[in-house]
Amino acid sequence: MILGIAGGNGLEHIRKDQVETVYGVDVNAAYLKAAAARHPELEGILECIRADLTEEPCHLPEAELLVADLLIEYVGLACFQRAVERTGPEVASCVIQVNSERCWVSDSPYSHVFDGLGKVHHHLDGEGLEKAMRAIGYRVAKSLEHGLPNGKKLLRMDFQWA
């Protein structure tokens, strides 16, 4: 299951002969339609689910693997915990952006596109994510950092059901 699938980046890595079903979850129906259209090779295994993870109840099927890259910052830890508990994955893999003290959006001519996101953005760090996942029975299996400009970094954390 991929939470926040958007337009389907990364789906090209799915091996149809190794996966029975891939659930693509997003709040935006247009994104789901675009993801399915971009990946016709996944017809029959890609199931797109329109869901707002911030709303109760949010119905999600069970999944063995859950991927949430650059999503938790926008739904918050409590909503993410609920999604993990509902899907019951053996492994949950997450990427979060850890921000510098300056700003969470890098300065660019296009930064105005993100003006409204400040209302839903949650500041996260690896310690807080680990604590939230431990509270629902998961332990860190792997953690990797990748530095970005302006002192920011991407932090990947893979969690295993304990």
Score class of each variant (00 low, 15 high):
residue 1 M to E: 04
residue 2 I to D: 15
residue 2 I to H: 14
residue 3 L to C: 07
residue 4 G to M: 05
residue 6 A to G: 15
residue 6 A to H: 08
residue 6 A to T: 15
residue 7 G to W: 08
residue 7 G to H: 13
residue 8 G to F: 04
residue 8 G to L: 03
residue 8 G to W: 00
residue 9 N to S: 14
residue 9 N to P: 06
residue 11 L to K: 10
residue 11 L to C: 00
residue 11 L to H: 09
residue 11 L to E: 03
residue 11 L to F: 06
residue 13 H to A: 12
residue 13 H to V: 05
residue 14 I to A: 04
residue 16 K to G: 03
residue 16 K to C: 03
residue 17 D to K: 12
residue 17 D to R: 11
residue 18 Q to D: 10
residue 18 Q to Y: 07
residue 22 V to C: 01
residue 24 G to D: 03
residue 25 V to W: 11
residue 26 D to S: 08
residue 27 V to T: 11
residue 27 V to P: 06
residue 29 A to W: 06
residue 32 L to S: 04
residue 33 K to P: 00
residue 33 K to Y: 12
residue 33 K to D: 13
residue 35 A to F: 04
residue 36 A to P: 12
residue 37 A to Q: 10
residue 40 P to K: 04
residue 43 E to S: 10
residue 44 G to R: 06
residue 47 E to L: 08
residue 47 E to M: 07
residue 47 E to W: 08
residue 48 C to E: 07
residue 48 C to G: 09
residue 48 C to D: 02
residue 49 I to C: 05
residue 49 I to Y: 13
residue 49 I to R: 07
residue 50 R to A: 07
residue 50 R to Q: 15
residue 51 A to E: 08
residue 52 D to W: 08
residue 53 L to C: 02
residue 55 E to G: 04
residue 55 E to W: 05
residue 55 E to F: 10
residue 57 P to V: 02
residue 58 C to L: 01
residue 59 H to F: 13
residue 60 L to D: 05
residue 60 L to N: 05
residue 63 A to G: 08
residue 63 A to T: 11
residue 64 E to L: 09
residue 66 L to V: 13
residue 67 V to R: 13
residue 69 D to V: 02
residue 71 L to S: 02
residue 72 I to Q: 04
residue 73 E to I: 01
residue 73 E to H: 04
residue 74 Y to C: 01
residue 75 V to T: 05
residue 75 V to W: 02
residue 78 A to R: 14
residue 80 F to T: 02
residue 80 F to N: 04
residue 80 F to Y: 06
residue 82 R to P: 00
residue 84 V to I: 03
residue 86 R to Y: 09
residue 86 R to W: 09
residue 87 T to M: 13
residue 89 P to N: 04
residue 92 A to H: 07
residue 93 S to L: 08
residue 94 C to L: 01
residue 94 C to W: 01
residue 97 Q to T: 15
residue 100 S to G: 10
residue 105 V to K: 11
residue 105 V to S: 08
residue 107 D to A: 14
residue 107 D to C: 09
residue 107 D to I: 14
residue 109 P to I: 03
residue 112 H to N: 09
residue 112 H to F: 14
residue 112 H to Y: 12
residue 112 H to P: 02
residue 114 F to W: 15
residue 117 L to P: 06
residue 118 G to M: 01
residue 118 G to F: 07
residue 119 K to D: 14
residue 119 K to R: 15
residue 119 K to W: 02
residue 124 L to W: 02
residue 124 L to I: 01
residue 126 G to A: 00
residue 127 E to T: 15
residue 127 E to F: 12
residue 128 G to S: 08
residue 128 G to W: 09
residue 128 G to E: 04
residue 129 L to K: 09
residue 130 E to G: 13
residue 132 A to T: 01
residue 135 A to V: 03
residue 135 A to C: 01
residue 136 I to A: 05
residue 136 I to S: 11
residue 141 A to T: 04
residue 141 A to S: 15
residue 143 S to I: 10
residue 145 E to H: 13
residue 146 H to M: 12
residue 148 L to A: 13
residue 148 L to C: 11
